[in-house]
Nucleic acid binder design. Sequence first.
DNA 1: AGTAACAGACCGAACGGTCGGTCTTATAGA
DNA 2: TCTATAAGACCGACCGTTCGGTCTGTTACT
Lengths: 191, 191
Amino acid sequence: MTEAETRQHIIFAALKLLAEKGFTNLNMNDIVRESGVSKGGVYWHFKSKDEIVQAMLDFILTEQINIVNVALSEPDSASAKLRRIARFAEAEALEQMPSPLDLYALATRDPVLMGRLIAYFDQYQARIAVLVQQGIDEGEFTPGDPSLIALNIISLIEGAFLIGLTIPNLDFAAQVESAIDLLLQGLNRRT
Amino acid sequence: MTEAETRQHIIFAALKLLAEKGFTNLNMNDIVRESGVSKGGVYWHFKSKDEIVQAMLDFILTEQINIVNVALSEPDSASAKLRRIARFAEAEALEQMPSPLDLYALATRDPVLMGRLIAYFDQYQARIAVLVQQGIDEGEFTPGDPSLIALNIISLIEGAFLIGLTIPNLDFAAQVESAIDLLLQGLNRRT
DNA sequence: AGTAACAGACCGAACGGTCGGTCTTATAGA
DNA sequence: TCTATAAGACCGACCGTTCGGTCTGTTACT
C-alpha cells in the first residue's frame, strides 16, 4: 500500500464509523481497530483527530461537488438538470454515506472546517446560479437574481436532506421529487 | 427557588453552553459551573446527561411549536401567516439560541431523541398542512396534497436555517424572505 | 426529627495522543 | 552482487487528562 492509499483507507474507515455511530461516539481507538492500521500508523498519517475530521469533510464535500458537476455537464434543460441533481442526492442518501449533519454541526464551532464549508457552499451556489441563468436565458425560468435563487434551491435540497435523514420511513425520493416540482412551478415562466 | 425553577435554570445554563461550545464540548462540569448548582444538585434534578439533553431538545421543540401556533392563530391570509412564521424563525435565529443542529445530529443515533423529533415534525407538518388547506380553500394556493406541500415548506425553512446558521455574514432575513417568495410564487394560483 | 434539596470530594473508565522500538524497502559503496 | 546504512511506514504499550457519574455528608424547612 502506498502512503496515499493507506491515508484514504483510514479515512474510509473513519467515514464508515461516523455513519454508524455519529461523531460523538467516534473515537481514535475505533478508527484504529476498523482501519486495521495501528495507532502509531494512524498518527503517522494524521497528526490529530481534528485532521482526520477535516479530511473526512473534504472528502464528502468534494464528492458532493463532483455529483453536481456531473449533473451540470449533461446536455439538458435547466429543470432537467435540477431534477438530476436532486435524484443524485437522493441516490447518495440511500447509500450508507454518513450524514454530513454531524460535520455541519462541528463546522459551526471550528474555523477551519467552517472555511471549507463556506468554500463548498460558494462553489455550489455559483454552479447552481449558472444553471438558473441558463434557465432564464432559455426562457424556461422567470427572471430573477440567479445567485439568490440558487441559494434558495440549495436551501430546499439541504432542507429535504435534513428532514429525510431525520425522519425514517419517509418516502424520501417522492418528497425530493415533489419539492423540486414545487420549486419549478414557482420558477417556470407562466405561459 | 422551587424545584421546577432550578430545573429550568439548569437547562438554560446547558442551552447557553450548547450555543457557545457545541455538543461535543458540552460536559457536566461546565453545566455545574455555569448553572451555579453543585454536581449533587444537578444530579438530583437529572439522573444523567442524556436526560438533560432530552430536556433541552424538548424545550427547543416546544418553543418552536409555540412560535408556529402563535403565528397560525393570527387572523391572516395563508401566505401572510407563512411569512409570519418565517419572520419569527428569523428573529429567533438572530438571538443567541443554540442551533438545533447538534441536537438533530444526536437524534439520528438516539431512539428517544428521535421519537421526540418525529413527534415534533408530525405536529409541525400537521399545522402547516392546515395552513396550506386554508390557502387552497380560500383560492390563494393551487390545489395539491397539503401534507406533502407542508413537508416541502418545512424543508425550505429548515434548509434556509441550515445555510443561515452555517454561512456567516449572510443576509439571513433577505434569504428567508426570498425563499418564501419563491415558494409562494409556486404555490399561488396563476391568475 | 425527618426529608427534600443541595454541596463537593472522589471514582474508574475511556479518551486523545506519545514514544521507543521494529519491519520493510531503497540506496550506495566495495 | 553483496552488504551496510538509512529512511519511511508502521506497531502497540503506555501516559496524563477528562469525562460522566457516585457517595457521603450538610443545610434548611416543615
